[in-house]
Amino acid sequence: MLIDWFTVAAQVLNFVVLVWLMKRFLYRPILRAIAAREQLIAAQLAAAAGQKAEAQRERAEFEAKNQAFEAQRASLLSEAVAQVQLERQRLLESARQAAATMSAKHQQALRNDADKLNQALAQRVQHEVFAIARKALADLADCSLEERLVAVFIEQLQGLEASAQQQLAEAIALGTEPVLLRSAFELPAAQRRLLQDALNHCFAGEIALRFERKAELLGGIELSCNGQRLAWSISDYLQALQQGVDELLQAQPTAATQP
C-alpha cells in the first residue's frame, strides 16, 4: 500500500504547522518590511515634492522680488539722473552768477584803477602845466602865475552878469559865516588884499573873507558862500587836453591794426 494514512495525517499536521510558522517568521516580517520601506519611500517622495514646491514658491518669490528691485532701481536711477540734471543746472547757474559778479567786480576794479590813474595823471598834468605856465610867465612876462590867476578871477568877478552878481550878493548878505575863498596854492598877502578890495568894491561893503588852500582845485580859485559859487580853474583846458590824449590813444590801436 503506497498510502500510509497515519503518515498522511501527520504530514497534514506538519504542513499546517509549517504554514503557521512560515507566516509568523517569513511572510509577515517580510511584507511588513516591504510596507515600511514603501511608506518610507512615499514619505521621502512626498517630502521631495514638498521641497520642490517650496523651492518653486521661493523661486517665484525671488523672481518677483528681483523684478521689484529692478523696477525700484530703474526709478531711483531716473530720479537720481533728474536730480543730477537739476543740480547741474543750479551749479552752472550759480557759477555763471559768480563769474558775472567777479567780472563786474573786476571791471569795477579796473574802472577804479583807471579813475585813480586819471586822477593822478590829471594832478600830475596840472602840476606840470602850472610849473610850465609859472616858468613861461616868469620868463616871458616877468609876472607870477598867482598874480595872473588872481587878476583873471577879479576880471571874471567884475564881468559877471547882473543877475548872477545879484544872486551872489544875496547869498553873501544872508550868510552868517565869512565867505570862503579856496585856492590851489597859498595866496600871497598882496593878492589877498587885491581880492578883498575887488570883493568890497563889487558888493559895496566889507566882506569877511576866509582863505583856504585846496590842492584838488586844479590850479584855480573858488569863491563859495551859502550855496553860491564862483570859480575859475584850468579844468576846461585839462579836459580839452584829456580829450586830445584820448583821441590819440584810440587812434593808435586802429593804426596798429591797419599797418
Binding site: N14, L18, L21, M22, F25, R32, A36, R37, L40
Partner: peptide, 29 residues
C-alpha cells in the same frame, strides 16, 4: 518513518532560515 523525520528536517531548515534572515530585517533602503 523517514517521511516524517525528513519533513521535520526541512521544516526546521525553512523556519530557522527564515527566522535568521527576518530577525534583522531593515525597513530602510
Amino acid at each position: 518513518n523517514a517521511t516524517i523525520v525528513y519533513t521535520w528536517a526541512l521544516m526546521l531548515v525553512l523556519v530557522l532560515g527564515s527566522r535568521l534572515i527576518t530577525a534583522r530585517l531593515s525597513g530602510g533602503h
